[in-house]
């Protein structure tokens, strides 16, 4: 992906828009896993598009805030701008019940934080976790569902057991990118079944 000193092409903008749309949509949807019931309303009045283009607009106004030597523009927009916008709304007055793991890192938006999102949220997530969700039972259920499908088993183990990322899982378990992506799709399907079984609201 390009850096701030070169003109971003239309093709690159198309990729940015699509990836930010997916990231934001999924990020917003995941709240059901952490906040349990009664969370049907979310960030009222705002569409996914609003977050995406607010993030892009902030970059266009202040491109110097993105340091391409540290992270790509998409990673910067995802983890430093959109996440911050979403968490701001989560802790706003109309979402007072929304104290959750998206919110804690707000004050660090402009810091040089290259740590992956998951690594950075874990120490803080405990405080905000919805106690009503029996995560151990859900994890046991998923573990039993992935049994017999070695690829999915390894991905599940890699992510949940060892905190590995895509490239690390592929290397550790000698997996091709296609095998990983297909396995991840199957894991997401299983996760969907778990959400249904445990009545996780989206």
């Amino acid at each position: 992906m390009t850096n701030q000193n070169t003109e971003i092409t239309n093709a690159e903008w198309e990729e940015i828009i699509l990836r930010l749309q997916s990231y934001t949509r999924k990020l917003v949807k995941e709240k059901g896993w952490f906040r349990g019931d009664g969370t049907a309303t979310f960030l009222s009045g705002k569409e996914i598009d609003d977050y995406v283009f607010e993030a892009i607009g902030r970059h266009l106004k202040n491109p110097e805030k993105h340091d391409p030597s540290k992270r790509s523009l998409i990673e910067y927009l995802k983890k430093h701008v959109i996440r911050s916008l979403v968490s701001n709304d989560l802790v706003s007055a109309e979402n007072k019940t929304a104290s959750n793991l998206f919110a804690y890192e707000n004050e660090n938006e402009d810091e040089d934080d290259s740590a992956p999102f998951l690594d950075s949220i874990l120490p803080h997530a405990e405080v905000f976790f919805d106690q009503e969700i029996d995560f151990k039972e859900i994890m046991c259920y998923i573990e039993s569902e992935v049994k017999g499908d070695t690829i999915v088993e390894n991905i599940f183990l890699g992510i949940s057991g060892y905190g590995l990322k895509r490239a690390e899982i592929m290397e550790e378990f000698n997996m091709t990118p296609v095998e990983f992506d297909n396995g991840m799709r199957r894991l997401i399907t299983i996760r969907g079944k778990a959400a249904k079984k445990y009545d996780i609201k989206k």
């Binding site: 990836r19 930010l20 997916s22 990231y23 999924k26 990020l27 995941e30 896993w33 952490f34 998409i74 995802k78 793991l101 999102f117 998951l118 949220i121 874990l122 997530a125 405990e126 976790f129 995560f135 151990k136 859900i138 994890m139 046991c140 998923i142 573990e143 599940f156 992510i159 949940s160 057991g161 905190g163 990322k165 895509r166 991840m184 997401i188 996760r191």
Partner: peptide, 19 residues
């Protein structure tokens, strides 16, 4: 599995769909 494992698992798809 701990809560951290669970959170890590749930959030992994956010990264996956936008990778």
């Amino acid at each position: 599995y701990s809560k951290a494992d669970f959170i890590r698992f749930v959030m992994s798809t956010v990264e996956h769909v936008s990778s």
